[in-house]
Design a protein around this nucleic acid. Structure first.
Lengths: 194, 194
DNA sequence: AATAAGAACGAACGATCGTTCGTATAGCGG
DNA sequence: CCGCTATACGAACGATCGTTCGTTCTTATT
């Protein structure tokens, strides 16, 4: 019985297919334009069938944030853990971040860039989740800045993150890929190992 | 006949009242959550009455961008024109920008920060307008960077704008006003006159 | 073979969306 | 005083929103 039995042993569950599409859509058009009807149409499902996998729209949005965050971690953070702590790992983290933008891992650029501006000012579980997960990324950055001997790790974290996000939004709005190289110039000046 | 005649000679026209509210709402929750019904309820108007002032939702959104852009220019750009071109004016522009954020001119922080991330990836007149008006701000910045003798004005523009926007989004999401001082530290290092 | 569990469906709900229409009211120019 | 224009209104439109419900079908367990 090697052949998949159609439902249970699917290589990718329906829920995963939904979230894969959902995370791309959210990065491109925001978490609010994730409508159940549109997702269902795009994936050839019924609204009620899709809905049943989550139970509410908010659950769908939270699950989407979870996946977006996981993809970010897998693409940017994990591959940097092979580097020694401190300056080398810090550099790798930042340049991975830039690569992830440049390679358009998400249709709409940085997942955080799209989603955090949207829920900045709307208290609730969604904002809380974004705060916590994006905060974790900043924690990782700050730890490595500290290990690299930065005199003010918090300051350095702010600067590095701002430059990368600046490159993202400039690229998204104006479409000039040259901003990534501009960001590299600035980052090389900021990072402890040049 | 000095007394206002209730409709024509209003100190503030209904249209202006709508847009004043609309621009605040857009900065806080985005241009898409500007619903006609909600605006009408908030302002004590009927949906159709409010609608008549614009003719379509897109016109309302474009008018909102116009006003947001105008307020930005009035708050950040104009007061810097008193400074001599070059380094002094460049500094004034940037620090005005920071002040405008810190004083919460808009409920949702920087108008551009809220609105540009939202329409990054949606071609159409709204994105075009944001591109053009935000582009004008970057032009102003680049001109002054050039006049200040920066060796790469485009690079400097990118860096300055990224840091200020980074402060905005960090403040919006995490609420710590200390980021503005962090931004000042970085900007002082970047600006030609320290 | 009987049963329980899960996935997906279609139909329908009340609410809200943007928009259209016809109408009433007001102020202004002739 | 009459008509014009602008302002605002209420009612209604079709579409879509998130959500609920009951049903069918498949798969897994007993």
């Amino acid at each position: 019985m090697a052949a998949p039995t159609k439902t249970k042993a699917d290589p990718q569950s329906t829920r995963d297919r939904i979230l894969d599409h959902s995370v791309q859509l959210a990065s491109a058009e925001g978490l609010e334009s994730l409508t159940i009807g549109r997702l269902a149409t795009d994936l050839g499902l019924s609204k009620s069938g899709l809905f049943g996998h989550f139970g509410s729209k908010e659950e769908l949005q939270l699950a989407t944030i979870d996946l977006g965050s996981e993809i970010f971690a897998r693409t940017v953070i994990v591959p940097a853990l092979g580097e020694p702590a401190g300056a080398p790992r810090l550099s790798k983290l930042i340049y991975n971040f830039l690569d992830y933008l440049e390679q358009s891992t998400f249709e709409g650029g940085c997942f955080w860039g799209s989603v955090s501006a949207e829920f900045d000012n709307r208290p609730g579980p969604i904002r809380d989740s974004i705060q916590q997960k994006l905060g974790h990324w900043l924690d990782v950055l700050r730890e490595q800045a500290a290990a690299a001997g930065a005199e003010d790790p918090e300051q350095m974290t702010f600067e590095l993150h701002s430059i990368v996000q600046g490159a993202n939004s400039a690229y998204q709005l104006f479409g000039d890929p040259e901003v990534f190289n501009r960001a590299r110039v600035t980052l090389a000046r900021m990072l402890p190992d040049g």
